[in-house]
């Protein structure tokens, strides 16, 4: 799965989770999206797990620095 496709699907997830139309890119961080706190981060991960049919380890979830890393993780998991 290419990063472009991941971004397309991720945009819908961000709409559902944050009610936010903010443009997302590799460098987007939690500080850039309104309402992205530790709680909605859990909901974001749940939605990603459901959409891409993947499971993340707690350590992986904790280490993510920006959206780019999340997308990298998804492509790595969903691609295999």
């Amino acid at each position: 799965m290419g990063r472009g496709e991941v971004y397309e699907r991720l945009k819908k997830i961000f709409l559902d989770v944050f009610d936010s139309e903010t443009e997302i890119g590799d460098r987007t961080t939690a500080a850039d999206v309104e309402g992205w706190d530790s709680l909605s981060h859990i909901r974001l991960i749940l939605a990603v797990e459901k959409e891409f049919r993947v499971r993340f380890a707690a350590s992986e979830v904790g280490m993510l620095k920006n959206v780019g890393e999340l997308v990298g993780l998804i492509t790595a998991k969903a691609g295999s």
Binding site: D16, D19, R43, A47, K50
Partner: peptide
Amino acid sequence: LDINQLSQLAR
């Protein structure tokens, strides 16, 4: 509804 849709509805 999944947990995010429930949250939307709650909002």
